[in-house]
């Protein structure tokens, strides 16, 4: 489904991604863990098409198509979704108008007619229930005045609306209290199917109790240095990253 091959990306003169390789198949959940500043968020932004990063080498293909040639919106139409670590506030644009614009453009590219107002509201209400969001949120400006937890819930709500093939959740769990984590975790779980896939970027093992991954990748200095199963998260929780970095460093002969 998604194939990342020897991906290098930089901001200005600074290289952040230094050769990422990753293969994701339908139905799989991949967790990416790793110390701060290792390039996890950069990877998610590059997949989504943020142009602050220049890709200098390598490729990303999604279902055989060259993602790097596409605009962010075209990637979204293909079914790629990025759950932001820090969701952007858009003053003056209400949640409902924002979602209406998004849904109807998605539909346009699937050759479907725009949703009528009644259908749209019904859909919106149903999806808000996924993350136990109050209906009063729909008339408020996108993420404006939302608490950290509400912003993250709003991301999952948008994900539920758009039903992406591949969702990348960038630290969706950071800043959430126990209850909010449960709500978000369960919300994401309900959206999991045999066909769609997820990349879950996290620092904590607890989110993975809700969204059980097939693989865990450890990111360090712009590349994946270890890939293992679910149990690796528990090791990391106990022992940190140093031992993995050392292990990989010796393997690389550093």
């Amino acid at each position: 489904m998604l194939t990342i091959n020897n991906l290098h990306a930089s901001v200005g003169d600074k290289e952040i991604l230094k050769g990422v390789n990753l293969e994701i198949n339908p139905g799989e959940v991949h967790a990416i863990m790793g110390p701060n500043g290792s390039g996890k968020s950069t990877l998610s932004a590059v997949i989504a098409g943020r142009d602050t990063y220049a890709v200098t080498e390598g490729s990303i293909t999604f279902e055989g198509q060259d993602l790097l040639k596409m605009k962010p919106e075209e990637r979204s139409w293909l079914g790629i979704f990025l759950g932001f670590q820090y969701p952007t506030e858009i003053p003056g644009v209400s949640n409902v108008n924002f979602m209406k614009a998004a849904i109807n453009e998605q539909r346009k590219h699937k050759n479907l007619p725009p949703l009528g107002p009644a259908e749209f509201l019904k859909l919106m209400r149903a999806k808000m229930a996924y993350v136990e969001m109050d209906s009063s949120f729909s008339s408020r400006g996108v993420n404006v005045g939302f608490s950290g937890g509400e912003k993250k819930r709003n991301e999952i709500f948008q994900m539920a609306m758009l039903e992406p093939r591949l969702a990348i959740l960038d630290e969706t769990d950071s800043g959430l209290d126990v209850d909010a984590l449960r709500i978000v975790g369960n919300g994401v779980n309900k959206l999991r199917t045999k066909e769609n896939s997820m990349i879950v970027i996290t620092h904590y093992e607890r989110l993975l109790d809700y969204i059980v991954p097939n693989f865990i990748h450890v990111f360090h200095d712009g590349r994946i240095i270890k890939t293992a199963g679910r149990e690796l998260a528990l090791d990391i929780e106990k022992r940190g990253y140093d031992w993995i970095i050392e292990e990989s460093g010796s393997k690389n002969g550093k």
Binding site: R75, T88, G92, V93
Partner: peptide, 21 residues
């Protein structure tokens, strides 16, 4: 970028921003 990542085209995203303004 946030709007485009949800599938709203650049042109439409620019319009939404101007209308908000």
């Amino acid at each position: 970028f946030y709007m485009r990542s949800r599938g709203i085209s650049l042109h439409e995203a620019q319009l939404l921003q101007q209308k908000a303004f």
